[in-house]
Simulated scan of single mutants.
Amino acid sequence: MTKPPTAAQRRIIEAADPATGRLTGSEAQLAGLVRHRLAFRHPRPPHAYFLTPTGHRLREGVQAPAAEAPGPPPDAPAPSGLFAARTGAEPAPPPTERPAARARDVRSAWEGLLEMRRMTNPDSARDRPCAWERTHLVQAAALALEAAGCRPGAGGYRVDATPQPEAVAVHEASPEGLRTCAGVLEAAGWQVSEHAERAGGTRYLLASPRRGRASK
């Protein structure tokens, strides 16, 4: 953000939907928030506008650090374009990171993804992955896990791409953690199966986005 938002823009931010961050306002005002990196425009009709994690922090009265990067690395796209869930392969978080702020960003990203499901799935289903998740498998699975409170990295989960179409591998440090990850992903609309590596027999999960509603 290069300069503070105007009073009118602040009113739009404060009036955002508290769960999804959806915004209402004139096209010019909303476009201005996008330029400030406080909002993003959904790529699918009706092209609604939503708060980014930075916008959510501003709405809640928490200013982001001045040195905060404006977006994720190029290889880590996300629903908002400004947030990347942790896959477990990243370096340890910096000591200056505020856990409460990170949790708020994760929650906002997850709510944004659920809203994307509602807006882009043909039946408006929020309990089944959408097209974005099928093209960003690792990030989508990692977001579901992090949003549920699972811990990434050493001692926690790691999400890896696989040669199989529409499948990721999820590793966990303990059998209990692996079962927890399986339950989280199944609840988030993924099909999950457990396997053993040929070398060493280490257990891991294969997870794929579910296409149809689960049978009763």
Rank of each mutant, 00 (worst) to 15 (best):
G200A: 07
P152I: 06
L38T: 11
P53V: 04
R179P: 04
R11M: 11
P73S: 15
R126D: 05
A101R: 12
R37M: 09
E68D: 14
A207D: 08
L185T: 00
L82T: 15
R211Q: 10
R98T: 15
Q139T: 12
G177S: 10
E60S: 11
S215P: 07
P165Q: 06
Y49V: 07
R151Y: 06
P65L: 07
G55K: 07
G112C: 08
E197R: 13
P152K: 00
L30T: 05
A64P: 07
T24K: 10
A69S: 15
Y157K: 07
S108H: 13
P45G: 08
P53D: 02
P18I: 12
R102N: 04
A101Q: 13
V159F: 00
A31K: 10
Y157W: 07
P73L: 15
A69I: 11
V184M: 02
T24V: 12
G183P: 03
L58V: 09
A101D: 14
S108I: 09
A84P: 02
Q63W: 11
A100Y: 03
P73R: 13
P91L: 01
G32H: 03
T202E: 13
S174F: 04
Y49P: 09
T2H: 11
R126V: 11
P4V: 08
S215N: 13
R210T: 01
S124I: 04
W190G: 00
F50Q: 01
G149D: 09
A199C: 10
A64I: 04
V138P: 01
P122K: 14
P72D: 11
P175N: 13
P5N: 05
A147K: 01
A187V: 09
T180M: 09
A182N: 03
Y204D: 14
L58A: 09
C130N: 13
A199P: 03
R35A: 12
M116C: 06
W190H: 01
R37Y: 03
P209A: 02
D127W: 01
L23Q: 06
L58Q: 07
T54S: 12
W190D: 06
G55V: 12
L33H: 04
P74K: 05
P95R: 15
T96E: 12
R59G: 07
V138S: 00
A101H: 10
D127P: 06
P65I: 07
G149L: 03
E97C: 07
N121H: 07
R179V: 15
M116Q: 11
L143P: 08
P45A: 15
F83K: 02
I12Y: 01
A78P: 09
